[in-house]
């Protein structure tokens, strides 16, 4: 027998999930670090470079709090984990792990970018706006694919789990 009857589109989606998990994972680490640095600046304990300190101060001046950064980082972490786990689910065509965790991952990813646009000042977002639009396209595309195009593959796959 041939190895798998998984549609190529699902394999491609799992690769894209991996790509976006890495991207949002990287940004998440950055947000966590920024949040701790912001806390140190607020408490007057920051020891870093002067230029970076100036940048952090400008964020605080624009009304960004360490909590905002932490919430964003937390959402990013959730998105990273869900997208990563869903890779396995997509490959196995698991309704729970692939379709539903993938959907939640997509929602978390969209929330991460939308909240970033909403909360972060122009100084951070300037020049990267369209790349955020690019990133925003993916979660909607993912959810559409999982619930319209591949719905039956998850529901009726003979070897499905969950």
């Amino acid at each position: 027998m041939a190895a798998s009857d998984r549609p190529g589109g699902l394999t491609a989606l799992s690769v894209l999930n991996g790509f976006f998990a890495l991207t949002v994972g990287g940004t998440t680490i950055q947000r966590f670090m920024t949040s701790y640095d912001l806390m140190e600046v607020v408490e007057g304990e920051f020891q870093g470079r002067r230029r970076y300190r100036g940048y952090l101060q400008s964020l605080l001046d624009e009304g960004v709090t360490p909590w905002d950064m932490q919430i964003l980082a937390l959402i990013g972490l959730v998105a990273t984990l869900l997208l990563s786990v869903s890779i396995w689910g997509l490959l196995k065509r698991s309704n729970l792990v692939g379709r539903w965790l993938g959907t939640l991952g997509g929602i978390a990813l969209a929330a991460f970018y939308l909240l970033s646009i909403n909360w972060l000042p122009d100084t951070i977002l300037r020049g990267s706006g369209l790349s955020i639009a690019r990133q925003l396209f993916y979660p909607f595309f993912l959810i559409f694919m999982l619930h319209v195009i591949f719905r039956r593959d998850f529901l009726f796959h003979p070897g499905r789990s969950g």
Binding site: T11, L16, F137, M145
Partner: peptide, 30 residues
């Protein structure tokens, strides 16, 4: 939409399209 090449086509078109837009917008925006 179900084939790998189809998904790649859709994704690449959007990705490259938005990157080109970004190329046009970025100098003014930055």
């Amino acid at each position: 939409l179900r084939t790998g090449s189809g998904v790649a086509f859709i994704f690449l078109t959007i990705l490259i399209g938005l990157s080109l837009a970004s190329l046009a917008v970025a100098p003014v925006e930055l």
